[in-house]
Structures are given as structure tokens and as C-alpha cells.
Measured scan of single mutants.
Amino acid sequence: MATDAALRRLLRLHRTEIAVAVDSAFPLLHALADHDVVPEDKFQETLHLKEKEGCPQAFHALLSWLLTQDSTAILDFWRVLFKDYNLERYGRLQPILDSFPKDVDLSQPRKGRKPPAVPKALVPPPRLPTKRKASEEARAAAPAALTPRGTASPGSQLKAKPPKKPESSAEQQRLPLGNGIQTMSASVQRAVAMSSGDVPGARGAVEGILIQQVFESGGSKKCIQVGGEFYTPSKFEDSGSGKNKARSSSGPKPLVRAKGAQGAAPGGGEARLGQQGSVPAPLALPSDPQLHQKNEDECAVCRDGGELICCDGCPRAFHLACLSPPLREIPSGTWRCSSCLQATVQEVQPRAEEPRPQEPPVETPLPPGLRSAGEEVRGPPGEPLAGMDTTLVYKHLPAPPSAAPLPGLDSSALHPLLCVGPEGQQNLAPGARCGVCGDGTDVLRCTHCAAAFHWRCHFPAGTSRPGTGLRCRSCSGDVTPAPVEGVLAPSPARLAPGPAKDDTASHEPALH
């Protein structure tokens, strides 16, 4: 009773807030009518008042009428009001819900409408889902798969039609296919003929059939049928067999079959498995989609049935006599038709004709302190090069084509190399640097090759510096006499390219 009084008091307290929050009759008014909170006449009256005075006034009048009803109607109103779709449509209802007392429970059932309790003993237990329907569909599909699609060729003596089998029958139906081979029951999904010589313990000319048996419980189990008994694959494991010639990621696949039913060829011909030897223990289905393919039931050349050999690369099948050149017997292992072999060759040939990528240039590290003349020119003028003790990398590039010797140069053309002071002394051009340390401070000019250098860098042994005729380390061993002091540049003949010694390969005349 306390809860009923509290709900009535809360409705009177929030009546105006609810009326202002509800700006549309749908969905709240319609939901109240659906849950029998508002009768039909009051529903029509509220809609009429909404058209006349507006939605807030109409709902305020409806809530005032609701306060005169019993506690069950008020409880049902609060339940409908706080439904998710009403809270989404009328956003101003959320503060009312947040301020609702926590001790007021809106989930209690309506009085007088409590459903009768059902004894637990009368409640049926839930049924577990079964796979009976899938099993029945598999039974119905198996006879259809064994139905012949056409008439065999005159040369083929193997013609068999499976008798119709009602689904209610649980007995196995067997077809006489000759040579002791028996087909599987209607619940078998796949059958492959297997030679009895590969099964340990088999006697006589009995041949087993590799099947997948579907049981009534819905589970499946792969086994071997020899005669009327089934054997699990673990009985046929043979770890010492060295003649297993397995197909790549293979499961067994029928390579020879008669049109209309699988079996042995007439005249004692023995149908073979995809792999010879003992049956392997793992009978998992292969991951290669080509091995799941269903080959055609007629020859791809003459479009006739009979004894066919199936290609492992495509769905086509052929007569042995229709092949070019014809085959006398079934080859062992994987067999592919000429079209598949030709496609494989065409895929391999473009790969062989692809040009080989060019090898990157060989990189040879230079000892610290040495650099090529090109690196000396590329440096920024007026700045010493940083990191001189790091190992430089010199790339061996292809030799350029031989060019004509340089033409003779006048001494005026070499004027930018040297600057003559007032006393006739050779001065260095701006930006000249030593080729060893890279520093341009207090550098000297070689009178023979006009290269800038430090005496301490080229002659670290402490050799005394002569007063005139300074030469760098590369030119100090040259027998050519030094030019007379005061000459602007060496003779043009000295600039012609010539053979250089091994220790002077990195010091070429550089223009500054």
C-alpha cells in the first residue's frame, strides 16, 4: 500500500513536468492505449483535445483523470512512461527518471493478473537440437547421386540401376557391380574402391570401400567397409609401409569409374585409389579445392560414357583410347591431361624469361682521411668538412668512354686558381681547403699541381719545410723540376691526363 501511495503522490508531483515534456501524442498516448491504461473513449478524447488546445494541455488533463483511477493503472502508467522508446522521444523525461526514488519498484506484477504457477513436473524439458533432418536429407541425396545420367557406350558392359529405396527402410541396399565389389548404403556420403591386398588381414578377392557413415545421432565417422563389417581407420595404420605414394595433400579420389555407378572395369580391371599401398590413418579432407572437384561422367573428346580416367587438374575425364597418344593402361600417381600440362608450361616460361635485376654498384670503404676530388669540390665554400675520421664509401662506377685530351690552356685561363699578391707571391683563392683534413686555415699551394695542403698533414714525420718551391706529398717525388717562383700557373702540358701512381689516385688537379 505504501508503494501505491508513493506512486500516486509522484504522479501528482510530476504531472506538469510530464505534460510539458510530452510534445507529441505518439508514441506515449498510443502505448498507453495498447497496454489498456487508457480506454478507447479517453484516447479519442485526448486526441481531440490535443487538436484543440495543444499537446501539453491534453496530457495534463489525461494525467488528472489518471489520478482518479486505481493503483494498478497508475503503476502501469509509470512502466509505459519509462520505456526506452519514450525516453528517446521525450528527452525531458530523463530528469524525472533520475529523480525517481530508488525504493519504488516498478517491476512488480499487476494485482489480480498474476499467472498461475505451473508445477515443475509438468514443464517439459527442453529438446536438444538434433541433426536428424540433415541425416534424412543426406539419405535422400545419396540415391540421386547414384542414378545414371545416360546410357553407357556399346563397348562398356557395366550397366546398373540402383533400385529405389524407401527412406523408412534401415537395411542396406547393395548393387552387384562384379568382381566382388559392393556399394555402400544410402547413408554413405562418398565411396572409393580399395584393393584388398592393401588391407592387412583381408582374405580372398574381397575389396573394401572407404566410406563416411552418417549415424542417426547426427555425428559422422569415417571407416572402411569390408564385406558386411565396418573398420575404423586406426586398424589399417601401417607405419612400416615404404610404398606409400601419396598425392599432394591428398584424400582418396576415384580416378576410374563407370558411368552411372562406381566400380571396377569389366574384364577384371581393378579400380585404383589416388594413392597406392596401405590406407593412410588420417582421412581428413584435403585443403586443395581441386581434389574436391567432381569430374564429368562423359569423355571430353567423344562425349560418351564408359570407363573413364579423370584428370587431377580439371573436371574433365577421358577414354584411354581417346587420348593423344592413347594409353594402354592407367598410369600410377597423379595424372593430368594435356591442357593442364600446357597451362603449367605456359606459367613457367614467362618466369624464366623475366630479366634479372641489375646488381647495385659495389661499394668499397675508403680509409679515414681520404676523399675523392669530387667530394672536395662539392663541399660548401668557406666551411670545414665535419666528421673527417668517419669511413667514407667510394662507389665503383662504370668507366666513362675515352675522351680526347684536354686542349692547351693559356696562363690567363688559370687566373682564378691563384691570386698574385703585391710581391708576386701566389695566394690561395677563397674557399681553398686541405685535401686531407678539410680545413682551409693557413693552407699552402703546391707549386707543381696548384693543390691546397697543410705541410703537417702531408709530411707528418716532421720534415723541414723548404723556403721556396713548396710541393705536396703527391708531387714531391716527381722528377720534373719545380717552376720558378712567381709564375702564375704550371705549363698547360702538365694538365694533360697521364698515368698516375697508386698513392696519388685520389689527388687529381682540382679547380677552386
Results as ranks from 00 to 15, higher is better:
Pro176Val: 15
Ala193Tyr: 11
Lys50Asn: 15
Thr183Val: 06
Val192Ile: 12
Val38Asn: 00
His35Trp: 05
Leu81Phe: 03
Leu177Ile: 07
Gln157Arg: 05
Ala160Cys: 11
Gly251Trp: 14
Gly219Arg: 08
Ala19Lys: 08
Glu45Ala: 00
Ala160Asn: 03
Thr183Lys: 09
Ser250Ile: 11
Ala193Gly: 07
Leu158Cys: 05
Leu122Met: 11
Leu210Met: 05
Ile224Asn: 04
Ser241Met: 11
Gly178Asn: 03
Val192Lys: 12
Gly150Leu: 14
Leu158Gln: 08
Phe230Leu: 07
Ser249Asn: 05
Gly150Cys: 14
Val199His: 05
Gly54Ile: 04
Ala19Phe: 02
Asp98Gly: 00
Arg79Gly: 03
Gln173Tyr: 15
Ala73Tyr: 05
Glu53Ile: 15
Val226Ser: 04
Pro143Asn: 14
Val20Met: 05
Ala73Asn: 00
Gln44Pro: 01
Arg132Ala: 02
Ser71Ala: 11
Lys165Ile: 15
Leu11Glu: 01
Ser107Met: 13
Phe100Glu: 01
Gln225Gly: 05
His14Thr: 03
Gly180His: 14
Lys83His: 03
Pro125Ser: 10
Pro143Cys: 09
Phe82Tyr: 04
Gln108Ser: 05
Leu62Tyr: 02
Met184Ala: 02
Ala19His: 02
Glu167Pro: 04
Lys164Tyr: 05
Pro166Ala: 12
Pro162Glu: 03
Thr183Pro: 04
Lys111Asp: 01
Phe43Asp: 00
Ala6Ser: 03
Gly227Ala: 04
Asn244Arg: 05
Ala261Val: 12
Asp103Trp: 07
Val20Ala: 00
Ser169Cys: 09
Phe230Ala: 05
Ala271Met: 14
Ala144Arg: 08
Asp98Gln: 15
Arg110Ser: 10
Phe59Val: 08
Asp84Lys: 01
Val104Gln: 12
Gly260Ser: 11
Thr46Met: 15
Pro166Tyr: 13
Ala186Arg: 06
Ile74Trp: 04
Leu177Trp: 15
Arg79Leu: 02
Ser248Ile: 12
Thr232Trp: 04
Lys114Val: 06
Gln57Pro: 00
Ser187Val: 04
Lys164Pro: 15
Ser107Tyr: 08
Glu40Cys: 00
Leu273Ser: 09
Pro163Trp: 15
Leu32Met: 01
Pro166Thr: 14
Pro154Gln: 01
Pro252Cys: 07
Asp36Ala: 03
Leu158Ala: 08
Ser99Asn: 08
Leu273Pro: 11
Gly219His: 07
Ala140Asp: 11
His60Asp: 01
Trp65Phe: 02
Leu28Ile: 05
Ala6Gln: 10
Leu63Asn: 02
Arg139Trp: 15
Ser239Ile: 06
Ser234Gly: 12
Ser187Glu: 04
Lys52Thr: 13
Gly227Gln: 10
Ala142Phe: 12
Glu207His: 07
Thr68Asp: 00
Ala31Trp: 01
Lys235Thr: 10
Asp4Gln: 00
Ile181Thr: 03
His48Gln: 15
Val123His: 13
Pro233Gly: 12
Cys55Phe: 08
Leu11Val: 03
Ser196Ile: 06
Ser196Met: 10
Pro176Glu: 03
Asp198Tyr: 10
Glu45Arg: 01
Leu106Gln: 00
Ser64Ala: 01
Leu11Tyr: 00
Thr68Ser: 07
Val22Tyr: 01
Phe77Leu: 01
Pro176Met: 15
Gln225Tyr: 00
Glu216Ala: 06
Gly228Ile: 00
Val188Ser: 04
Val199Gln: 07
Gly91Ser: 12
Lys161Pro: 06
Gly268Met: 12
Leu13Ser: 01
Glu237Trp: 08
Arg110Tyr: 15
Gln213Met: 00
Arg132Met: 03
Phe236Thr: 01
Leu10Ala: 01
Lys83Tyr: 01
Gln182Ala: 15
Val123Gln: 14
Leu146His: 05
Gln213Asn: 07
Ile209Cys: 01
Lys253Cys: 14
Ser196Tyr: 07
Asn179Cys: 13
Gly267His: 14
Ala58Gly: 01
Gly228Thr: 15
Leu11Gln: 05
Leu106Arg: 02
Pro95Gln: 15
Ser64Tyr: 04
Asp23Glu: 10
Arg174Tyr: 11
Glu45Lys: 03
Val38Pro: 01
Lys131Leu: 01
Gly263Cys: 06
Ala170Tyr: 15
Ile18Arg: 04
Ser249Glu: 01
Gln189Lys: 09
Ala193His: 15
Gln212Cys: 10
Thr232Ser: 12
Pro143Met: 10
Gln182Gly: 04
His14Leu: 01
Lys52Arg: 06
Gly240Leu: 13
Lys50Phe: 01
Leu11Asn: 01
Leu210Ser: 03
Val123Pro: 06
Ala31Asp: 08
Ala144Trp: 15
Thr72Asp: 15
Gln44Ser: 04
Ser24Glu: 06
Gln182Trp: 02
Gly178Tyr: 15
Ile18Val: 01
Gly178Glu: 04
Leu47Ala: 05
Gln94Asp: 03
Glu51His: 02
Arg132Phe: 01
Glu237Met: 14
Ser64Gln: 00
Ser196Cys: 13
Phe230Met: 07
Phe100Gly: 01
Phe215Gly: 04
Lys165Phe: 13
Asp105Cys: 07
His35Pro: 02
Gly54Thr: 00
Ile74Tyr: 02
Leu210His: 06
Ala142Ser: 09
